[in-house]
Design a protein around this nucleic acid. Structure first.
Lengths: 339, 339
DNA sequence: TTGTATGCGTTATCAA
DNA sequence: TTGATAACGCATACAA
């Protein structure tokens, strides 16, 4: 059977379109009597409004768009979880797009979302993203935009993130206080701000504790496969006979890769080399030794981002001016057996 | 600046709406000269058609809806990855909804999607789903529906799945051929067909090899936390002094949980107890011992499902009759060190 | 080759 | 309390 329209239920009841519409929307102009009648037969006919017509008329779509580097990553899938759950509560649907760490794809996705007339956009920037016209385009269209996790400070929009510098700093300080002195860093790519911040946190912690920063102790992880990166860098570290007593990895998976190699080489973790991760991915409590790491509140990040977006959409509709927020979610060290 | 409309560029050029529309859509009716002009100023003005108006007019939305039990699961996020990538190629956007393993939520999500007038729906059923009016509603609305992974045979729509029975059967046969005789099974819930199929595969493998099926060797995992389930069932198995030489787990994470407990108890895997998983989750090659398991083609499942959906949407639009497909994706045993 | 008119399914304004 | 009418932004049948 074809979709039944407003007009159909109007015809059946011998009423006009507009009365039926108003009745369905519970308008005060309509008598209880007809409201009841209309709602009854609407239900009977299984009528539900065509949202795309509603959207055209009301000039909103009740859908928001999300762009992330990749779906297949525990951290991001948890963020998405938070986003979707929060959006649903307010009746918003969410469209998810991946940039695959490519800026050109990211731009394309932005255009898709704009054309789709989403009511708001949430983005975690790709590692490649180093220019921002596409973000400015969103802003110039007056579409609320929230940047989360991988953000760009210079863009005038709300942001939700963690303090990567601080988290890295206190992790390394923790290692130092525990007595580790030669601490390697398995760092990430040079572009995303997070990676740089964590590196700086590592460096500063060293400096503040009178340990010289030694560039030969930092290893770059840029193969887009964290586990492999951790594994191969640990290998390099060992075969080059670089003396360290701890590794601060930028990611749990990198840490796990490193541990895997160390264990294969009969190098005891943490007795000979301690390892510290970042994210508190579920697996970090499962592997052995269990991994000390920084807890990163992914679900909450998604939820809070969505909350702010919803808020901006609302104030925009009321024609008030929106003031951008910059939220820094707290992280915490979770200390287990790898250090 | 406000969104610029078709009408705006028409006005500027002193042309009618329809010529502009046709020019933009590269219609043969329009002279190359005006096409050029129109397309030029359209680009200049940064004009892009309002998709919701287009949707209303063309009676499709170029978006498809997906309902899965949960996003935060490696298997599902890979499926979603496959779905999104394939959809994008044909210019479709995808809305993702979670059922959280609740049938009532699943029903709600279906309604949302129908009202949204998505062009097609992809569902992996929740564990709770034991009646199917909501699916029939989709079908009666003539919206193409594909069931994947967690399917229901009785619904007249295309399905893509793996052969859970076969995969379980050959896993257990493999264990038997290797000499294991007392094989426990850590099974899943009673409802989703997969879980039952795998259980039956396990049982049949035993029977076909003259090993008595012993109900006291099967353990139920139903806490919605696979790792914990595996851990606690291994614990139960050991503390009840049930003699087994192998465990066939319905999930990699359950297997990993079991291994974790066994290792804690200094029980050697696989020497004292072998463990076999299911899914070939990335971590199964990382833990030690590396886990033997069934490779389940998640990305491909998403891609193929989307492909079939696209196909059905197309043939529906051409007013041809669609014939439902039932695809069984091949799995394969990947043997590592846990057995 | 271009323009006019109509409709997609609603909501909202105004008149009855 | 109800109904006629216009409008949302675009595409298309038909007329010019």
């Amino acid at each position: 059977m074809p979709q039944i329209r407003l007009k159909d239920v109007a015809n059946i009841l011998g009423l006009s379109n507009s009365t039926v519409s108003k009745a369905l929307n519970d308008s005060f102009e309509i008598s209880d009597e007809t409201k009841r009648k209309v709602q009854h037969t609407a239900r009977l006919l299984n009528y539900t409004p065509n949202q795309v017509a509603v959207n055209l008329r009301k000039k909103h779509t009740k859908t928001i768009g999300v762009i992330i580097p990749t779906m297949v990553h525990h951290f991001f899938s948890k963020i998405i979880d938070g986003i979707i759950e929060r959006a649903e509560k307010d009746g918003y649907l969410v469209i998810i797009l991946q940039s695959n760490e490519s800026i050109s794809l990211e731009k394309k996705q932005v255009n898709l979302l704009i054309d789709k007339r989403v009511d708001g956009i949430l983005i975690s920037l790709s590692n490649e993203t180093n220019e921002f016209v596409h973000l400015k385009k969103i802003l110039s269209r007056n579409i609320p935009l929230i940047l989360f996790d991988k953000i760009e400070p210079s863009i005038a929009c709300s942001k939700v993130k963690i303090d990567d510098f601080e988290a890295a700093y206190s992790s390394v300080v923790f290692l130092i206080k525990k007595g580790y002195k030669k601490i390697a860093h398995f760092r990430g790519d040079f572009n995303p701000k997070n990676s740089v911040d964590r590196f700086n946190g590592y460096k500063q912690a060293l400096l503040d504790n009178n340990i010289d920063f030694d560039p030969s102790l930092v290893f770059l992880c840029d193969n887009n496969s964290d586990f492999e990166d951790g594994y191969s860098n640990a290998k390099k570290l060992i075969s080059d006979k670089i003396k360290v007593d701890a590794i601060f990895a930028i990611t749990d998976l990198i840490a796990i890769g490193a541990i895997k190699y160390l264990k294969e080489q009969q190098i005891k973790v943490p007795e000979e080399i301690a390892v510290f991760g970042f994210s508190n991915w579920f697996m970090s409590s499962v592997i052995s030794p269990t991994l000390s790491t920084v807890d990163q509140p992914a679900y909450k990040m998604g939820k809070v981002s969505m909350e702010i977006l919803l808020d901006e959409i609302r104030t925009l509709k009321e024609n008030k001016t929106v003031t951008h927020k910059e939220i820094t979610l707290p992280t915490k060290l979770v200390i287990r057996n790898s250090c």
